[in-house]
């Protein structure tokens, strides 16, 4: 619904996400841990790419580097051609821990409006964006509730509403549905896809769930275990119209899933060199 006016404000390549040789090493007291070794990939404007990898594969580290929350030790992240050095203005993030990413002292509407206030969006426009965002995640009725009065799935919807009201060029999602029940999860997956198709932003979706990655993405990037590299970039050639039952029943879906599954299995034992961070 809002896709046209959102898009018109956006330069053609502003959603282009470029990750070049990113490397991240933590310097702890007395030990150093190489979490991400050498990651290079790019996600084009308006693309929906999923990142999967075994747990402990540095997915969250990578995402934090992309979001500008952590400075990479080596390499760089570019968004729309500009180097990311702190959280860039055109980027929104949805975290896994919905309960901890919403401000509990603000109502749902205030939570969504706060980033807009910070962007100095004029008040009438702000109100319209908040209402639209709530509408599009199916939460029209709860603007004056507090987040903790809502169920987990609803809280994550609020977080998503906040992200899309921000009108980002790039939306990062860090295992956003790992903590909700299966039914809600399916609903939220479909919501994510429809929002992406309507709004036309770039989406980078991190998950450990292979099914989810294949179901959602146009591409699936398979990461190795820590220290992390990209093992494979799988193109998902499923039809754009996806539906929980029929899409997952497609033979091609099964093939892709099996392929990614093998890759992830291989990823776990990819590094034969002694891993410095094997303590997890």
């Amino acid at each position: 619904m809002t896709s046209t006016d959102v898009k018109s404000a956006v330069r053609a390549d502003s959603g282009l996400l470029d990750v070049r040789g990113v490397q991240k090493t933590y310097y702890g007291s007395g030990r150093t841990v190489e979490a991400v070794r050498d990651l290079t990939f790019s996600v084009g404007t308006g693309e929906l790419a999923c990142i999967v990898g075994p747990s402990g594969a540095g997915k969250t580290t990578l995402l934090k580097c992309i979001a500008g929350l952590l400075p990479p030790t080596g390499g760089e992240v570019r968004l729309g051609g500009a180097r990311v050095q702190g959280p860039p203005p055109g980027m929104a993030v949805v975290f896994q821990e919905y309960g901890r990413s919403l401000f509990p002292w603000m109502t749902v509407a205030d939570n969504i409006a706060l980033p807009l206030k910070q962007k100095r969006t004029p008040k009438p426009r702000r109100a319209a964006l908040v209402a639209e965002a709530l509408e599009s995640v199916g939460l029209r009725d709860v603007p004056h509730a507090y987040p903790w009065q809502l169920s987990g799935g609803m809280q994550q919807r609020v977080a998503i509403a906040r992200a899309i009201a921000y009108e980002p060029d790039v939306l990062l999602m860090d295992e956003p549905f790992a903590a909700v029940d299966a039914q809600t999860r399916a609903e939220l997956e479909d919501l994510t896809r429809s929002l992406w198709r309507n709004l036309g932003m770039t989406v980078l979706f991190v998950t450990h769930d292979i099914d989810e990655a294949v179901y959602l993405g146009q591409r699936v990037l398979v990461l190795s275990g820590s220290p992390t590299v990209v093992m494979e970039d799988v193109a998902v050639d499923l039809p754009a119209e996806r539906e929980q039952l029929s899409t997952r029943a497609l033979p091609r879906f099964a093939e892709l899933r099996a392929h990614v599954y093998e890759q992830v299995q291989r990823a776990k034992t990819f590094h034969t060199a002694p891993a410095a961070g094997a303590s997890a």
Binding site: G28, T60, L70, S226
Partner: peptide, 15 residues
Amino acid sequence: AGPPPAPHPRSRTRT
């Protein structure tokens, strides 16, 4: 305890 990796993502002051 969150899901992220063991090393603590706290940027140590290396001064």
